[in-house]
């Protein structure tokens, strides 16, 4: 079961919190949508600090982060 976290338009630190919640649920992969570089870096840093794999793709209106265990 994969999860999708749509954090576009949310301000700091909500994208990170929402992603953290999804990671804590333990279902991977998690697809996180963000629209600023700040959110991309914050989400990436948080996920990597929890030893998750993070792949970033640019999407139409921001970035898509794929987080896997």
């Amino acid at each position: 079961m994969s999860q999708i976290v749509d954090a576009r338009g949310l301000s700091c630190p909500q994208p990170v919190l929402a992603t953290k919640k999804a990671i804590d649920k333990g279902e991977f992969p998690i697809e996180v949508l963000v629209d600023t570089v700040t959110s991309r870096e914050n989400v990436r840093r948080m996920a990597e600090s929890r030893n998750k794999q993070v792949k970033v793709e640019e999407s139409e209106d921001g970035f898509k982060l794929m987080i896997s265990n």
């Binding site: 576009r8 338009g9 949310l10 301000s11 630190p13 909500q14 919190l17 629209d35 209106d61």
Partner: peptide, 13 residues
Amino acid sequence: FLKSGYSLGRSNK
């Protein structure tokens, strides 16, 4: 508040 779901909502382009 943030932990209990506080949010100012989304912004738009």
